[in-house]
Design a protein around this nucleic acid. Structure first.
Lengths: 136, 136
DNA sequence: GTCTATGCAAAGAGTTTGCAGATGT
DNA sequence: ACATCTGCAAACTCTTTGCATAGAC
């Protein structure tokens, strides 16, 4: 609704989000964009991350521990939190599958289901290897 | 691991959690248990809610806005947040369905998927009615 | 008697916000 | 020129923690 004006800071934040698959926290974004704009403030980073999320140009991923994480990829997909290293990774089943979950949920709910977010918990490939070598 | 000792406060908190389907926030639990223990502190409520969650006797539901919510029902099920009134409601598909989501995810992830949490977004039956009557 | 739990208050993390000045259109 | 955006700092919300005392075993 508001009249958006270009800002180099916001452009840099968006560019960084789109360039990484790390699902950074607001603080990580801050530290990164600080390299280009040494005087940028954390408040500005938050304001722009929320703006981007509201405009649908980024996704906010609420996580149980620590701060929320942000994702520049807006194509619907899920996330896996590795319970060993804490990293957040992408998981992309087909669109049909995502749709079918809403449909199945609707069948069990007296109201309207619009969307859903899934957070998977597991162990990433790298941590699986580490555990395995420790056991030997 | 720790040696648990009985406490009337914890018992009261657990009893309240099991008696309600409201998915209260820590503060709501606090206000309720306060009626029985007027001098209970919010810190004690948080400590016990986390204890119960760690012991698997309650579930912590992280939500995007506002504080986390707690659920005394430990049988696996999902939650729907009504985007109109903010209430959190239960949604219970069959166990097989829950298992199949992990299986489908495993197919798309290079690692191990242990579990998942889903938060659905939608409009509850009551808010659907309200909207409908406003439109007339 | 010993160890845990409590109440209180202070601190902590993450996030938002008010304001004066800089910047985009 | 005018509205928006920024940097800074203060404030705010939710949650955790340190400590002395009360309570469970």
């Amino acid at each position: 609704m508001a009249n958006l004006k270009y800002s180099r800071q916001r452009a840099s934040i968006k560019e960084y989000l789109m360039s990484t698959h790390e699902h950074p926290t607001a603080d990580t974004v801050y530290l990164h964009v600080k390299e280009e704009f040494p005087h940028i403030s954390l408040g500005t980073v938050y304001r722009n991350l929320n703006l981007l999320a509201d405009m649908g140009e980024a996704v906010k991923i609420p996580t149980p521990n620590g701060g929320d994480r942000f994702d520049g990829s807006t194509h619907p997909h899920y996330h896996v939190v590795c319970t060993s290293c804490g990293n957040v990774m992408d998981l992309a089943p087909g669109d049909d599958y995502i749709r079918s979950i809403n449909e199945e949920a609707s069948r069990h709910f007296d109201g309207i289901i619009d969307s859903h977010k899934i957070l998977f918990y597991g162990t990433c490939a790298r941590c699986c290897q580490k555990k395995h070598s420790n056991e030997i």
